[in-house]
Write a protein that binds this DNA or RNA. Structure first.
Lengths: 236, 236
DNA sequence: ATGCAAAGATGATTTACATCATGTTTTAAC
DNA sequence: GTTAAAACATGATGTAAATCATCTTTGCAT
C-alpha cells in the first residue's frame, strides 16, 4: 500500500489510547506498526464488503464507519456505528467466517490494516487483547439483542427516538448547538430505524415541530433530550 | 446445594464433549467437577433473572433453555435458545454486567453452576477456553444481527417461516415424523417472531392448510422444508 | 451560471397486522 | 369426574405505517 504524508505510526496514533490495544507494551506497538498499512477512505467508500473473505483487522485511526447489510429486498440495514479507536472485522476473523456485513466510511477516514496472522499472533501472545475483544463482542451482543427487542415491540416513533439517542451516544453532540456529530441522510436514518424513508422524514418533521429536535438540512440538534427519552419509552 | 442421585460428574457428562470445555485437560475437568454444583430445574423454572447479578457460569448437562427479556409493555422476547452442551451467562460475566435477560427451562433440565472466580481462573489458565467463548460470542452476534435485519425488513409471514427453521436448526427434528424436538406454546412462538399470539396462531394454521407443516396440539411437523425456506424468503 | 440528479418533503391511498370480541379445546386442580 | 383456567382458534374492526404520487430543494457536474 502507498504511503501518504498523512500516514501516522501506531506510536503517535491518538486513537490507540481508547482502543483494544490501549494496554499492550511498546514492543508490541512497534511490531504492529511495522506490519500495519494505513488506508485513506473517502466518504461512502467501502472498507470491506458483505460475503468477502476477511484478510485482517481494521483499526479506525480517524473518521467514522457504518456496518451495513443488504436484505433480500435490497434494502440496507445499519447494524453498528464505529469511530476512531474502534476496530472492525474481528467478528468474522474469530468466527472464521465471511463478512456478514459491509463496512462503509461515513466521512473521510484513516483506517489501518493489520494482517490476520499478526492479529492472531497478538491474541496468542497477549491475553489482555483477547479479553478486550471478548468484552467488545459481549457489548455488541447486548446492544444487538436490545435492538431486536425494540424492533419486535416498539412502534416506529419510539424507534426513531431511540435511534437519535443512539446516534448521540455513538458520536456525541456539538457542545455549541447540541447537534449530532454525524450527518446521515434521511434514507440512512430509515435504514437504521427499520422503516421507509418517507416515514422517517415525517417523524423527523414531527419531532422538529414538537421542538424535540431542530432540523437544518442534514444537521439535527437535540433540543429536548428528556422528551426524546420519554418518546423512546425508555426507563434508563 | 443438595446432591441428588441424578447428579453427574463432569467426567461422565456427555454434554461436555460438544461444549466449550471439550478440549480441556483431565486435571482441569476434575477441578471444575470438585467446585461445580448441579441444579435440577423443572419446566418453566428460572435459572436466573433479568437485572440479577451474575455469580457464575451455567452449563446445561441435559435439557433446553430459553433466554428472554421483557419489553417495556410487558411483552416477552425470546433472544436465544440453548441445549445440552451450551453454557449460559457468559455474556454478563465478561461484560461485568447485570443479566440483560432471564434464562428459563423449556423442559426439565440438569444445569451445573461454576462460580465466577473459577470460570475466570479457567479463562486465565486455558487460552483455548477463552477462544471458544470468543467464537461463541461471535456466532451469537452474527445470529442476533441477522435477526435484526429480519425484524426490520421482513413481514410476519416470512419471520414465522424463519422461526420454524430456526427451531429446527436449534433442536432438530424427530426422524420419525419430522416434528420439532421442542414444544413451544403459540405465545412463545409469537414472542420469538415478534408478533401477536393471534397472528402467530393464524399463520401456523395457514402453513398447516398449505401442507407446509402439520399441527397436532403443540407438536409441529415440518412437511415441506423447501417451501418453508421459500416462504421465509431466504437464499441459503 | 445552468441543468440534472439526488435528496427531501408532503398528501392520498392501501394494507398488513394489532386489537377486540367470542367461542372452543386442552390442561390442570380438587 | 367435575370445574376452572389456560391455551388455542377464528371472525370483525381499527390503525400504524407502507406504498404511490407529486412537488420542492439541494448538491454537483459541466
Amino acid at each position: 500500500m502507498k504511503h501518504f504524508p498523512t500516514d501516522i505510526t501506531c506510536m503517535e496514533c491518538n486513537a490507540r489510547a481508547h482502543s483494544v490495544f490501549k494496554k499492550i507494551g511498546i514492543t508490541e506497538v512497534e511490531e504492529i506498526d511495522s506490519i500495519k498499512s494505513c488506508g485513506h477512505y473517502k466518504k461512502g467508500q467501502f472498507i470491506f464488503s458483505e460475503r468477502g473473505n476477511p484478510m485482517g483487522l481494521y483499526c479506525i485511526s480517524s473518521g467514522k464507519v457504518k456496518l451495513v447489510t443488504t436484505g433480500e429486498n435490497g434494502k440496507e440495514q445499519i447494524l453498528r456505528l464505529l469511530k476512531d479507536g474502534d476496530v472492525v472485522g474481528y467478528r468474522s476473523l474469530i468466527s472464521n467466517d465471511r463478512y456478514h456485513c459491509s463496512a462503509v466510511a461515513l466521512e473521510d477516514s484513516t483506517i489501518c490494516f493489520i494482517p490476520k496472522q499478526s492479529f492472531f499472533n497478538l491474541l496468542k501472545s497477549n491475553a489482555g487483547v483477547g479479553f478486550e475483544i471478548m468484552q467488545l463482542l459481549s457489548e455488541n451482543l447486548k446492544t444487538a439483542e436490545q435492538h431486536i427487542v425494540s424492533m419486535a415491540q416498539k412502534n416506529v416513533r419510539e424507534r426513531m427516538a431511540e435511534a437519535l439517542l443512539f446516534f448521540k451516544a455513538s458520536y456525541g453532540l456539538d457542545p455549541e448547538d447540541q447537534s449530532l456529530n454525524v450527518a446521515f441522510s434521511r434514507e440512512e436514518i430509515a435504514d437504521f430505524v427499520g422503516t421507509s424513508t418517507e416515514t422517517a422524514i415525517r417523524l423527523l418533521s414531527e419531532f422538529n415541530q414538537d421542538e424535540i429536535i431542530q432540523l437544518q438540512g442534514k444537521k439535527i440538534s437535540i433540543l429536548n433530550c428528556d422528551k426524546l427519552i420519554r418518546t423512546a419509552n425508555l426507563d434508563v
